[in-house]
Design a protein around this nucleic acid. Structure first.
Length: 832
RNA sequence: GCGGGGGUGGCGGAAUUGGCAGACGCGCUGGACUUAGGAUCCAGUGGGGCAACCCGUGCGGGUUCAAGUCCCGCCCUUCGCACCA
């Protein structure tokens, strides 16, 4: 029998990911599917994702993972009827770009646009619902004009100031290094010994906002890990500031009695210290100042001047990192003495580098009996150690072989009127007692430092300040913004420690905006964290070049509804943008002070159990996977390999399962029949799935949502049954946030002409999932012995009867039940 | 040291917050269809045992009819902070 001329049976249309994806990329562009109507769309939903640094290597699967997770969330919100705004831009300034440009010998102004073009190409393939008409590029003068404007707002509010600060300096790279670039006192790149330099730098007074930044955290819907990292970083500690009077260094150091009387008449200097343990003041046997402390010059005796100067010089040379990590105690005696306000004793004043100028008051009262560092120091320099706290089973005379630092269980000893009082109570009591005598006050100190925004480099927005001999420091008037970063050929940093911009004469020299006389520009550029501290304010106002952010559109779209990003920015970026927002609020420019209502940190994609890195050679290039599997498969796979907030291990092996899942959906829709009726059991599973996926997506439980859809497809296709159209149509909507291209194609195959993303979310019908009975699990003496089918509303007595009627279970019910517990809808527990 | 996550089959991971441990996927085993299978489909798959059953969520205790989940004491791991007074 030969077939008639109608040829072989028609090949069923196979899923061709590349064709489908190309078709829908073009269609979305042409229809403007991803453009957001910012002015009129109902129920605004601002779904922000952290913008990437456009590296020369191109998009990383880690970026893709993060963006996809955010995109799914955004597409889901759109299906729920929100007007979703999902912008994306480029964070392209900074030392990374500059160093890379120097390395490959291509100017950043040439390199960055090239990188951005490549990023854009890759991002377009990823199927993100990004509104590209409102993108930002931090290196574009159209953008950084407003970054400079933000600087000026802070400057005008007295929140930007200049001060000298120590920085890590690599003499070989001729550049300032961040603390994390210093490895064991050496430059991470070239291995040269790092030194410390003092440079005039611009700072933002973020410490003025420490309390607000800390207190507001409680009310934010953020990942707990992120809030905790911020709390850690702000580092509030409660304690007391205690003042110690310094004795006249010229006096006779041999007699305490004489000294005390002299000191009252001369009224010499006071040293303020910060302590979290005011209760231990009776054990404060010496004071220590940071070597940089301004009082050191005042109090140092002639006899000690040379050794103090030598010690200070040595400290000034040391790099900042090794100073903080070298535990070996060093120091020098100043020759001065102070009075312990609790005991009246004369105690020596030392300087040591274990005391940091930038924390607290830059001075401490040393209590060697109850602080490990002080104990070590006192032991080394033979200073007195006094016990003032006794732990359980200890007395005032129990010798101290190490510092006793427990501040929960102890009671005070050798502390006069406070003897016997528990440490927990004594803290407040001692502070109050000292306060009465005008020697102390309760204070909270923060670990947070002011934000240094100066960079002595080329690739950043110039700080908009002009120095005039007549007028002093003059901010660039807003009408003169932007201060354009000049395109200079030689942007290599040099040994001067001054930005390369200083070498560009015609840019550097400028007329003073205030008096017109010759003046000079600030040559530092600002930190990239300033670029990203306000970018979310800009997106909705992109295109409006008369303001940084339009008040009406800002009111409509901000604060950001959901922000998703990596935990590597949990501290600095998020803190700086919160601070900037608070300042804008205080300036009356915004009516909210927390920029991100909800923040979730995504996890990290690792490979072979390790973070992806070039040196390890385990970096996954998304292009390869997009070519081989398509964006829909890669997206869904990335979301399936683990919980979104934890990340997961990328492995080639399991991607095929996800691809098979999409193919099965494709075949189900292709083969669906419109005649007859949908199967009731299948519909039940469908509606359970609608509920599950709808519950899981908002929780970012993408992996379990996908698993639920896979389960449904297994039911749908069981035994190679032919699905009904009503069984597959809602599935296309469910899967669409994950696999948008194939969903659009299938939606069209089902006869729709509009986008699936404007079709709404399938309705969940509770009546379809009602079960008329269920399998009751029966436990006897705590062990599962079987299950019986019973009615949903079964009573305990009926359940027990049913269990007894099942031979396999009944044989374990050996006597009269002592106790019976029925968990409705779940199980029956019988104790015999 | 302080703070935040984690420890579940061969692997990635589920488990409605105290209620059938191992959903879903990979891998593996067997089968079907095939000239063929690295395609597709079906079935099985924590360990032990012929079986009835027994044992199993890092370790040791405890609470409970019932513990991966709660309590106490440890171990390991990962991330953040750290000479911060």
């Amino acid at each position: 029998m030969t077939a008639p001329d109608s040829a072989a049976p028609i090949e069923p249309l196979a899923y061709d990911a590349a064709a489908v994806e190309a078709k829908w990329r073009a269609r979305w562009l042409e229809r403007g599917t991803n453009r957001t109507d910012l002015a009129a769309g109902p129920r605004p939903y601002y779904g922000l994702m952290m913008f990437p640094y456009p590296s020369a290597e191109g998009l990383h699967v880690g970026n893709l993972f993060a963006f996809t997770g955010n995109d799914i969330h955004g597409r889901f919100q759109r299906l729920q009827g929100h007007t979703v705004f999902e912008p994306l831009g480029y964070d392209a300034f900074g030392i990374h770009s500059e160093n890379y440009a120097l390395k490959v010998g291509v100017h950043p102004m040439e390199l960055i646009p090239r990188n951005i073009a490549n990023f854009r190409r890759q991002l377009d393939r990823a199927g993100l619902m990004v509104d590209w008409t409102r993108s930002v590029d931090t290196t574009d003068p159209v953008y950084y004009r407003w970054t400079q404007w933000v600087f000026l707002q802070l400057y005008h509010r007295g929140l930007a100031y200049k001060k000298k600060a120590g920085v890590n300096w690599c003499p070989s790279c001729k550049t300032v290094l961040a603390n994390e670039q210093v490895i064991a006192g050496e430059c991470e790149r070239c291995g040269t010994k790092v030194t410390q330099r003092f440079l005039e730098q611009w700072f933002f007074r973020i410490t003025d906002y420490a309390k607000r930044l800390l207190d507001n955290l409680d009310g934010l819907d953020w990942s707990e890990s992120t809030k905790s990292a911020q709390r850690n970083w702000i580092g509030a500690s409660e304690g007391a500031e205690v003042r110690f009077r310094v004795l006249d260094p010229l006096g006779d150091a041999g007699s305490a009695a004489v000294m005390v009387s002299r000191e009252i008449t001369t009224g010499s200097a006071e040293i303020a210290v910060f302590t979290t343990r005011p209760d231990t003041i009776f054990g404060a046997t010496y004071l220590v100042l940071a070597p940089e402390h301004p009082l050191v010059d005042v109090i140092t005796s002639d006899a000690e001047r040379a050794s103090v100067a030598a010690y200070r010089a040595r400290t000034a040379q040391q790099d900042i990192v090794s100073r903080k990590t070298t535990k070996e105690k060093t120091g020098a005696f100043t020759g001065a003495y102070a009075v312990n306000p609790a005991t009246g004793d004369m105690i020596p004043v030392w300087i040591a580098d274990y005391v940091l100028m930038e924390y607290g008051t830059g001075a401490i009262m040393a209590v060697p009996g109850h602080d490990e560092r002080d104990f070590e120091f006192a032991t080394k320099f033979d200073l007195p150690i006094v016990r003032v706290v006794a732990g359980a089973g200890e007395s005032a005379r129990t010798p101290l072989t190490a510092a006793f630092t427990d501040d929960t269980g102890g009671t005070l000893v050798n502390s006069e009127r406070f003897d016997g009082i528990p440490v927990s109570e004594a803290k407040g009591m001692v502070t109050a007692w000292l306060a009465e005598r005008k020697s102390a006050k309760a204070v909270t100190t923060y670990r947070l430092h002011d934000w240094c925004i100066s960079r002595q480099r080329y690739w950043g927005p110039p700080i908009p300040i002009i120095y005039c001999d007549a007028c002093g420091t003059v901010p660039v008037p807003e009408r003169d913004l932007p201060v354009v970063l000049p395109n200079i050929a030689d942007y290599t940093p040099d040994d001067s420690g001054v930005s390369p911009l200083a070498r560009h004469e015609e840019w550097y020299h400028v007329a003073c905006p205030s008096c017109g006389k010759p003046a000079r520009r600030e040559t530092d550029v600002s930190d990239t964290f300033l670029d990203s501290a306000w970018y979310f304010l800009r997106y909705p106002s992109v295109g409006n070049d008369t303001v940084a952010f339009d008040p009406a559109i800002t009111k409509r779209w901000l604060p950001v509804t959901t922000y998703i990003g990596g935990n590597e920015h949990a501290v600095l970026h998020l803190l700086y943008s919160r601070f900037t927002t608070m300042v804008m609020k205080d300036a009356g420019l915004l009516d909210f002070e927390e920029p991100y209502t909800k923040f979730r940190a995504h996890g990290l994609i690792i490979r072979d159990g390790a973070k992806m890195s070039k040196s390890r050679g385990n970096v996954v290039n998304p292009d390869e996977y997009l070519d081989q599997w398509g964006a829909d498969t890669l997206r869904t796979y990335l979301m399936f390999l683990g919980p979104f907030e934890e990340g997961g291990d990328f492995r080639d092996a399991s991607i095929s399962g996800v691809r098979r899942f999409l193919e099965r959906i494709w075949a189900s829709v292709r083969d669906a029949s419109a005649s007859g009726a949908a199967d009731r059991e299948v519909l039940k599973k469908l509606h359970q799935t609608i509920r599950k996926v709808g519950d899981d997506i908002p929780k970012l439980s993408y992996n379990t949502a996908i698993a639920a859809m896979m389960e449904y497809v297994n039911v749908l296709r069981r035994g190679e049954r032919a699905p009904h159209r009503d069984e597959v149509l809602p599935l296309v909507q469910l899967v669409s946030p994950f696999a948008p291209h194939i969903a659009e194609e299938l939606w069209e195959m089902l006869g729709h002409s509009a986008s699936v993303f404007d079709s709404g979310w399938p309705a969940f019908d509770a009546s379809l999932v009602v079960e008329d009975g269920f399998d009751l699990v029966v436990q006897v003496n705590g062990k599962t012995r079987g299950k019986v089918r019973v009615a949903t509303s079964v009573t305990q007595a009926d359940a027990l009867a049913a269990a007894r009627g099942d031979a396999a279970i009944a044989k374990f019910i050996t006597g009269e039940p002592k106790k019976v517990v029925l968990v409705p809808g779940r199980l029956l527990s019988i104790v015999v």
